[in-house]
Amino acid sequence: MVISADRDRAQLMLAGAFILATALIGLSIVLSAGNYTAALAGESGTVAQGDDATTARASIAADVRSYLPIVNEESYTTGSSEYDTRKDSFRDVFDLVDGRTQRIYASQGRVVTLGSPGFDEGTRIKQVEASGGGYETFREPGERDATGSPDPTWQLTNGGQVRNMTFHFSQLPRQFEAPFRLRFQPVGAGTEWTVEVIGQAGTGEWLIRTEEVGGTATYTCERAPGAVGEKTMDVSDAEMDGTYCRALDQIELASTDYRVIAETPSSSLVPLLSAKQYARGKFWLVVTEGDALTPPAGTVVKTDSDLIYSATVPFTYRSEAVTVESDLRVAPGEIE
C-alpha cells in the first residue's frame, strides 16, 4: 500500500509538472505574439505614415518654389505684368497638381489635398537693360552724375518684407573712409544695423562690417587677396561669393521689416572721390507691394510691379493614423 501511494503521488507530480510547463510555454507565446504585433504596429506608425506627411509636404513646397519664378518671369518678359494673369496661371497649374497628387496618394491609402492658394503681392527692383545688352551698372549715392551733381540717397524699401536682396559688384570702394553703406532701419521693434562693404574686385579682397546703431555689437567677415573676379553679396542668404558671412546674418530680412537705405559718403569726402572709388555693379531684390519706393530719378534702376512675392497653399495630409493641416508659404529666391 505504501509503495502504491508513493507511485500515485509521483505520477501526479509528474503530470502537474507537464501541465505547468505547457501553461507557461503557452503564456510565453501569447506574450511574445503581443509584443511582436505591437512592434509591427509601431513601425508602421512612424515610417509609413508619420514621416510620409513631411515628404509629401516637402514635394508640394518644391513644386511651388520652382513655379513661382516661372510665373513671375513669364509675365515679366512678355510684358503682361498683371497680378491677375499670374495668379490665374498659378491657380490653373495647382488645380491640376492637386488633382494628380490626390490620385497618386489615394492609391496608397492616403489623402493629400491642396486648398485655394493665397498670394502676397510684390515689386522687383533691378537695373534696366543697356542698349548693348547686359545691365547698366548702378550709380552709388554720392557719385556724381553727368551734370556733376551727387545722386541723392537711395531708399530702396519703405519697410515690409524683402527677399532675394543681392548686390553684384564689379567694383568695390577702396577706402575705409568711404565704404558702400547700407542702413537697415526696423519699422517696428528691432535693432538698427549698418552694413559697410569695401574691397577691390580686381584682387578679390573684400571686407564686410556690420554695426549695431547705438550699440556696441560689431561683426566683420573678410577675404584676403587671392581670388580675382566680381563679387556677389546675397544679403538674404547671408553669403558673400557663396561663402557664409556672419556679419550679414545679423540682418534678419525674413522676420523683421526694415527700411533699407543706401547712404551717401560724408559730404566732405564726396569731392575727393573719383569714379573708381565708388561701388559699381548691379543689384536686385523683391519687396512686398506698397513697401517699394521709386528709385531716385536718373539712376539706371527700374521697378517691376505686379509680381507674386509669395504664395500660400493650404496643405492637408490624412492617413489612418496621422492628420496634418498647415499653410505652406513659399517665397523663393529668384534667378537673376
Binding site: D6, R9, A10, F18, L24
Partner: peptide, 21 residues
Amino acid sequence: MRGTRAQMFTLEGVLSALVVL
C-alpha cells in the same frame, strides 16, 4: 526508499521542464 526515488524523478522532471521552458 522507493517512494523517495520516485519523488526525485518527479523533481528532476519539473526541473528539466523549467530549463526547457
